[in-house]
Amino acid sequence: MAANRARGQRAGLTRQAVLEAALRLVDQEGLKALSMRRLGAELGVEAMTLYHHVPNKVALLDGVIEQVVAEAVPPEFGAATWRADLSAYAHALVAALNAHPHTVPLLLSRAAMTPRNLRTLEAVVGMLHGAGFSLPRSLDVLYSLTSFVVGHAAAQAGRVDGAGDMASLDPAAYPLLVTAAREAGEDAAEARFDFALDALLSGFEEERAATSATG
């Protein structure tokens, strides 16, 4: 075991380097290509060397999610208004997921409770609580926002956007759907995301205001 550790150290590997390589592999070939053996080959080390940095495949998958989420985290939550912070986070997260579409199924299926991700969640909840949301409601806001963003990214990754298909339907049979889809245009997904995000944030604001008024 000591010899294996020495080989890993000589290879100059760190947990961060392993996770970055894993994300690159997923981006290039999809989740099915990710295995300890294949990742070791990409890094030029034996698979066993990787276990000094990630204990198992589960930890590796959680680490891949961590890398994607890290791309969406602003330098400091609370630097702007809570609404501006959440909006920036949502846009950054959907951009990260669009850049790494093969990772979207992971976010749909895993909590990925790594220390780094938990620190991000703690920062968001702290920012929301400081803005006047109760602690339970702060967590509700965070989960609602994340679910919306990941769902939107999943639809984009799977090319599940009915508007494009609706525009090509028979206008005699479905005049309203066809007209709406054509007026929205081919690049309506981003505008639709902004519309839904603004509606969510407005709902959160109403909840915060109501809580402040009764508190």
Rank of each mutant, 00 (worst) to 15 (best):
T179N: 02
L108Q: 13
A99M: 02
R83I: 13
S109H: 13
G40P: 05
V64C: 12
A47E: 12
L23I: 12
E66P: 03
A191G: 05
V45K: 03
V73D: 00
R110P: 00
R5A: 14
G63H: 08
V69N: 08
N56C: 03
R10L: 13
A84G: 05
A131M: 01
P171C: 06
T211W: 06
D198Y: 03
R5E: 07
E207W: 10
P74W: 11
G151I: 13
T214S: 03
Q156A: 13
V141I: 14
D194R: 15
A196D: 08
A22N: 02
T103V: 14
L106N: 07
A154W: 10
R192T: 15
A21C: 02
M48V: 15
V73N: 01
A154I: 04
A153F: 04
Y51C: 02
V26K: 00
G44K: 09
W82M: 04
D161V: 14
D170E: 01
E29L: 11
A72D: 02
F204G: 01
L34E: 02
T211P: 00
A112D: 01
G126V: 11
A41R: 15
A88V: 09
L200M: 06
D194H: 15
P101A: 08
G162Y: 14
E29V: 10
L121S: 12
S138H: 06
M127I: 08
E206C: 05
D165C: 08
L201M: 07
M48G: 12
V54Q: 06
G215N: 05
I65A: 10
V124C: 01
A173L: 11
R38A: 13
A131T: 04
V149W: 07
Y89T: 06
N98Y: 11
G78E: 05
F195C: 09
A123Q: 11
A70H: 09
Y89R: 08
P105F: 10
G30N: 06
V160S: 05
T49F: 01
T81M: 00
A181L: 01
D140H: 14
L139V: 15
L139E: 10
R182F: 02
S147R: 12
A184G: 12
